[in-house]
Amino acid sequence: MRLVSIHNCEEGLILAKPLFDQNSRILLNEGSVLTLSFIHRLKAKNIHYVYVKSEITNDVEVNDNISTNLRFETASKLNEVFSNLKEGKVSKNKTIGRVGLIKDLNNVFEKIMKEMNSSKHLLNLLSHMQFSLDELFEHSVNTSLYALSIGKHMGLKDSELHILGLGALFHDIGKLKSKDNLKKEEAENNKDSWKRHPEVGFEMLRKESEFHLLIAHCAYQHHENFDGTGFPRGLKGTEIHLFPKIISIAEAFDHLITHKSLLPHEAMEVIVGRSFIRYDSKVVETFKNAVAIYPIGVTVELNTGETGVVIGYNKKYPQRPKVRIFKDSSGKKLQVHEFFEIDLLIALNIMIVKCDAIIERKKVNS
């Protein structure tokens, strides 16, 4: 199967995986043929990428670290918690723990931990973006998955990963109680007000007796910068706890992909460029090796002029994937029997110069 940007979809493509809406209902099933009407509807629902069938990669399987159903279940429980807070159903004398919401969310989170621990694959950064959730829920779930992946590769214990993951899920909860609930665009004109959300989140979470206090500090410190230029307290270096250091990278990475429309390798370049300034370089280095920045199924162009699709990667060096070539250096599409593979971990003189979710569609017989 191939990974395709919704903006590059054409009529006739055949879905290789089903698409879901935010209520976990199937929008289009596997095997559905995309029409212009379907493509417009998917764009309207903010579907970013789709997996489609292709003769180039009909033997390539994409493994998701977290099942679609579990992602929706997590978002649903998180939605319930956030909605209760936003609507004022949780008063000063009644925390979200007392109304039983944390217990339910913890149960779901245990399932996430189990699936991630049992997965033998690096986190596929685009596989989960085939459907759209509420912006804050989606950002929270994505940030948590990225943070867990980093923590797992740093050798954190399960008990530590649990705290880190929940801290990431709730890192932006303070935005629900900020008086003006500013969006990032509005923040440019009222930055001081927007900058209150880490403190607000800390005050909300530290009152939850069922939460480890570190979860509250994750919300409090996730906008602190390594060089001391962050907020709210201007902490730097070792003054910042490891968990919010991880979360700051994870949430920034998700923002670059989701809101700035950067592809994973482009977003990673931005993160790496901010090492020693915003981010701890050791955590950044771990992140580079914890995620598949070139997802299996994505199209890449090499410095040789050849075009191929990523079909695998080396866990220790995910930046150097295996590529199946289907176009030669002149742009001519090869016949199936002419396809060949290049392992960039061996061919060190060959580099990826462009990455995009574009596919050469095969005509569908009517």
Rank of each mutant, 00 (worst) to 15 (best):
F287M: 06
M129Q: 14
L3T: 01
K354P: 12
G308A: 03
H40N: 15
G88Q: 14
F20C: 06
D172L: 01
Y313N: 08
E188N: 08
D356Y: 15
V270N: 03
E285P: 01
D192N: 09
G230M: 08
L27F: 05
K282C: 00
L344I: 08
V33Y: 03
A16Q: 08
V310I: 08
L334Q: 06
I350W: 00
L123R: 15
D254S: 11
G100M: 10
E115S: 09
N124H: 14
G273I: 04
S209F: 09
L36H: 13
K354G: 12
K354D: 11
S67D: 10
V52M: 03
L3S: 00
L164F: 07
K315Q: 07
E306P: 09
H197D: 01
V108F: 02
L176I: 04
V62S: 11
L256W: 14
L13Q: 03
Q22W: 15
A292N: 15
N124K: 02
V353R: 13
V52H: 03
L105Y: 07
T304R: 07
N63G: 05
V200Y: 01
K288V: 00
Y279H: 00
G174K: 14
A250G: 00
V300L: 04
L176A: 03
T307R: 12
T57A: 14
L126K: 14
S37I: 10
H197M: 03
K92M: 15
G312K: 11
E251A: 00
N79G: 12
H223T: 05
H241S: 06
T35P: 01
K157V: 00
R361A: 00
R25S: 14
R71Q: 04
S330I: 05
H222K: 09
